[in-house]
């Protein structure tokens, strides 16, 4: 079964130089050439196609600005494609940033509910998972203190823990596999491998070919919005092998 099918996908952004954000500037631009808005079209993704089968893991490689994150945002439904289609089968959890919507004034516990509801979960669906989420994050001691007292590593741990406990069918991860210290990182990697073994599809954006090699069985390299290279890892890593 296909989890994600991307066909002929293009995304064009309009860069608006001197964009008139206010009425004054809009008015001035009627008389001053220099204040006029210049529009420049910028092709962030150019005719990208690929297919990820259910349970597979795809690595997206490329330099800064090559279109990796834009591609992820389109698959997540955050941005609309300019041309082409994206078909997604299953529940997608974008992990573009850990702990989206976290509010520093609220406690860790309150933030768990807030964060999960952004993924479309009801509070009563989260309650049975609370213990597992808090245990995994290793933050039970601090869970009812405001998030502003957490270190950034602790916040990421909580965000990661919520995300992985929501049991997504497809996980879209943007450079998030460096959470916390060494021990916690290992725990995260094991957890992702476990979820992969259970049939989760993974799309991983990364700078690092080693990381992609470790987690993914196929990869795509993007450059200036085009697919310049793609292939399968040889030999494909078996997800269970990573558990050891």
């Amino acid at each position: 079964m296909t989890a994600v099918q991307v066909t002929g996908l293009s995304k064009e952004f309009v860069l608006r130089h001197n964009r008139a954000m206010g009425i004054k500037t809009k008015f001035l631009s009627l008389f001053h050439q220099s204040k006029r808005e210049r529009r420049e079209r910028f092709l962030a993704l150019d005719d990208v196609s690929f297919r990820v089968a259910q349970g597979e893991a795809l690595g997206l490689l490329g330099h800064n600005g090559s279109g990796k994150s834009t591609l992820l945002q389109i698959i997540a439904g955050i941005l609309q494609p300019s041309a082409g289609t994206v078909t997604v089968n299953g529940r997608v959890a974008p992990l573009i940033q850990l702990g989206v919507g976290f509010n520093p004034e609220l406690t860790g516990l309150e933030n768990i509910f807030l964060n999960a509801s952004l993924y479309g979960f009801l509070n009563r669906e989260i309650k049975p998972m609370l213990e597992a989420i808090i245990d995994f994050s290793e933050l039970s001691q601090f869970i009812d203190t405001p998030l502003k007292n957490y270190s950034s590593g602790m916040q990421m741990r909580l965000g990661f823990s919520v995300a992985v406990h929501l049991q997504p069918d497809i996980l879209l991860a943007d450079e998030i596999l460096a959470v916390g210290d060494q021990d916690f990182q290992k725990k995260c990697h094991d957890r992702i491998a476990q979820m992969r073994a259970d049939g989760m599809t993974l799309i991983l954006v990364s700078h690092s070919p080693e990381q992609v090699e470790r987690f993914c069985d196929q990869y795509i390299r993007l450059d200036h919005g085009r697919v310049v290279e793609s292939g399968r890892m040889q030999p494909a890593p078996s997800p269970t092998a990573l558990l050891g």
């Binding site: 945002q73 997540a76 439904g77 955050i78 974008p94 573009i96 940033q97 989206v100 919507g101 952004l118 993924y119 479309g120």
Partner: peptide
Amino acid sequence: SLAQKIYF
């Protein structure tokens, strides 16, 4: 910042 990171 919320809308750019997740769909709802």
